[in-house]
C-alpha cells in the first residue's frame, strides 16, 4: 500500500518544528526583536501562493475574483518581505556599529 503524500508533508512539518525549537532556543536574548522581524519576513513566503493565484487569470480576464485576492495578497506579503528583511538588517547593523567602535 502506498503512503499518502500528506504523511510526507506532515513529517517535514513535525521535523521542522523540532528544528525550530532547537534553533530558536539558541538565539541570544538580545536578538529577540530581530528574531521576530525576521520570522515575520520569512513567513511571507506565503507570497508563492499569492503569485500562483494572481497568475491564474486568463488573458481576457486578468482580474477575476480569485486572482484579485491573489494580487492583494502579493502586495501584503511584499510589504512584509521588504519591510521585514530591511528592518531586521537595520537593527542588526546597529549591533555591528558598536563592535567596530570598540575595536
Amino acid at each position: 500500500m502506498e503512503i499518502d503524500p500528506f504523511i510526507f508533508r506532515l513529517s517535514i512539518f513535525i521535523l521542522s518544528i523540532f528544528i525550530g525549537y532547537y534553533v530558536v532556543w539558541s538565539v541570544t536574548p538580545s536578538l529577540h526583536t530581530p528574531l521576530m522581524s525576521v520570522t515575520n519576513a520569512i513567513s511571507s513566503v506565503i507570497i508563492v501562493g499569492a503569485i500562483i493565484a494572481a497568475l491564474a487569470g486568463s488573458s481576457e480576464n486578468i482580474f477575476d475574483i480569485s486572482s484579485i485576492f491573489g494580487f492583494i495578497a502579493i502586495v501584503l506579503a511584499a510589504i512584509n518581505i521588504f519591510g521585514g528583511f530591511l528592518v531586521t538588517q537595520r537593527m542588526l547593523q546597529m549591533y555591528k556599529k558598536k563592535k567596530d567602535k570598540k575595536k
Binding site: R9, I12, F13, S16, G20, T39, S43, V48
Partner: peptide, 8 residues
C-alpha cells in the same frame, strides 16, 4: 511554506 510555518 511548511518548513517556514513550523519554524515561525
Amino acid at each position: 511554506l511548511i518548513i517556514t510555518g513550523a519554524l515561525v
